[in-house]
Design a binder for these strands. Structure first.
Length: 567
DNA sequence: CAGTGAGCGAGCTTCCGCTTGACTT
């Protein structure tokens, strides 16, 4: 009798079938096979466990295949992803097969693995367990809560705010970030300030320095407010003579960034390739299907030991030992987010020996692959060594002090391969400094630039920065970031102008409506607090229906308040 | 008598998260 293995993704199914051999059939579920029926009344308040489910079209075909093969199998192994949704998918399939009476003659178990390597899969098949009921209940609570919020508030919007289409735990908070940023911009008043920079010169050697302190007090960036003040200082500078009092050098290290997860890939592809989140995910999907990269929807920066050692081999071959991070176990990265579920590896090339410039990829795929390759390889390389130099240039009476800073790369290390992009176009503070400059050298002023500036309002969100902030707050999941962006645009709550989100009036009205009547449910901490309760459920310390009862008790009166309003 | 406009009723929309794939930029 054969074993039947269920995973979520067809590409994964193919790979695993290759690992497991003749006695296994592997079938993909294509994600969830059933979901709440897409209409009102699928769950009724208080009767939380009487849920009306509907099987998706895709689900039907996959379930048919599964039950056909299950009849000729001795063991069913549910190897969906090792996270909450994966546990739920396994449970749904199990429930549906039970209904068909197929499970009577079949042993059912659950297997999990975090990386798709031969050894990890083999080990998982040996160490199976039962479906984790508590985890499934945490899923049920999450699923029902989202439904209740969305399907109660959206109809209120239809009636109250013409043109408004939808509200939800995730999309509305994303919209709120956009709108609050715009509010800050609206009330922002630019402040004038002046900078004073001098180019000193000594025998052809030029040093650009900024004024650092005046009459014994340190000058901060915005301290010179008016042209008059700047002029007075300039006059004093012109009357003074300057020499070097200190040259301070100190070694600094720069470390590589962790390998990509979904959010960082989307951000970096936006910065370096100008891709939208959606485009990034489509290109990544196709690289994944071609088995070029590991799974692209992940919140874990961890690379399997196998992956790390392949990368280390490449670093030695392409560069040399000096470029390798010295610990043989490699650099180990940890997830920053408490909400991370770490079901998959980081995003990396499956075969790092396939160099970005030596493969058959082209266009978007080639570019994105190169980005992923470089980031993954650099994450296991040695740090860069730099020397940071600081030159202190006081006037003779020491009342005016200039300071120049610069850094020089001594050893490039990972920078040979990869450097993260910048969000802002602000010029770097550091300039090149000449070598062989000495204390007591006297300097001439070549040029003196007073420059007028104005403080800038906070920048509007881009897709990349919005995803970064959502992730930081634990809102949304790797599989949904791109679709959150889409739905805000489709609802015409905000539009992208020059790749930046500009809220529409409609969007701002929705946000203030929600803040008025449902503030508790759209504050930034709501999701994190919900997740804490879900953790309690998953640990067996809280009953899932009590979470919903408690939620409903607080939520329901707010609906009444809106209903009771007169027009 | 023809054209206009107010008023009414019916029917529709919606969440988040897991997968692709068909379609358009």
């Amino acid at each position: 009798m054969k074993n039947l293995v269920i995973v979520e993704s067809p590409a994964k199914a193919k790979t695993i079938e290759g690992y497991l051999g003749e006695s296994y059939n592997v079938i993909a579920s294509y994600g969830h096979v059933r979901d709440l029926e897409n209409k009102t009344g699928s769950v009724l308040p208080g009767k939380w466990s009487e849920i009306k489910w509907a099987i998706s079209e895709r689900g039907k075909t996959q379930l048919n295949q599964i039950s056909t093969l299950a009849k000729e199998s001795g063991r069913l192994i549910l190897a969906t992803d090792p996270d909450r949704e994966g546990e739920a998918i396994a449970w749904h399939i199990c429930e549906l097969l039970k209904k068909e009476g197929i499970l009577d003659s079949l042993e059912v178990c659950r297997a999990v693995f975090n990386s798709i390597t031969r050894s990890a899969v083999a080990e998982a098949m040996e160490n199976t367990r039962e479906i984790n009921k508590e985890k499934v209940q945490a899923y049920l609570a999450r699923r029902v809560l989202d439904y209740v919020v969305g399907f109660n508030i959206s109809p209120l919007l239809w009636r109250r705010l013409p043109g408004a289409k939808s509200a939800g735990r995730v999309q509305s908070v994303a919209l709120k970030l956009i709108c609050e940023r715009e509010d800050k911009r609206d009330i922002f008043e630019p402040q004038e300030y002046w900078s004073i920079e001098a180019a000193f010169i000594k025998e052809e050697k030029k040093i650009k320095a900024k004024i650092n302190s005046l009459d014994g007090t340190k000058l901060k960036k915005f301290d010179i407010k008016r042209e008059k003040e700047a002029e007075i200082i300039i006059e004093r500078i012109k009357k003074s003579s300057f020499s070097i009092s200190e040259v301070n050098k100190k070694p600094i290290k720069r470390n590589p960034r962790p390998p990509f997860i979904t959010s960082t890939l989307q951000q970096e592809a936006a910065r370096k390739l100008r891709f939208s989140a959606d485009r990034t995910m489509q290109v990544a999907q196709s690289l994944y299907e071609k088995a070029c990269i590991t799974y692209m929807r992940t919140d874990s920066p961890v690379i399997s030991n196998e992956g790390i050692s392949l990368i280390r081999d490449v670093i030695v071959r392409k560069f040399n030992d000096k470029y390798l991070y010295k610990d043989p176990l490699g650099r180990i990265y940890k997830s920053k987010s408490k909400q991370a579920q770490e079901a998959h590896e980081a995003i990396r090339p499956t075969d790092v020996n396939k160099y970005p410039d030596e493969n058959s990829l082209s266009g978007d795929e080639k570019e994105l692959y190169a980005l992923i390759w470089n980031r993954a390889v650099s994450s296991q390389m040695a740090s860069a060594d730099l020397t940071q130099t600081e030159i202190i240039i006081p006037s003779q009476d020491k009342n005016i002090i200039f300071k120049a800073t610069g850094s020089q790369i001594v050893f490039k290390g990972f920078l040979e391969v990869y450097e993260e992009g910048n969000d802002t176009e602000e010029e770097s503070e550091e300039t090149r400094l000449p070598t062989n400059i000495n204390v007591n050298d006297e300097l001439q002023i070549e040029t003196l630039f007073p420059e007028q500036h104005f403080t800038k309002p906070p920048a509007r969100y881009t897709e990349a920065s919005l995803i970064r902030d959502l992730e930081e707050k634990g809102i949304g999941r790797p599989s949904t970031y791109a679709s959150i962006m889409k739905s805000i645009k489709r609802r015409e709550y905000a539009s992208l102008e020059n790749k930046q989100f500009l809220p529409a009036n409609r969007g701002r009205v929705v946000v203030s409506f929600l803040d008025n009547y449902f503030a508790e449910y759209f504050k930034y901490e709501f999701t994190a607090e919900m997740e804490e309760s879900l953790d309690l459920i998953a640990r067996g310390d809280l009953i899932w229906t009590s979470l919903l009862d408690k939620f409903w008790t607080g939520f329901e009166p707010n609906i009444g308040n809106v209903e009771g309003l007169s027009n």
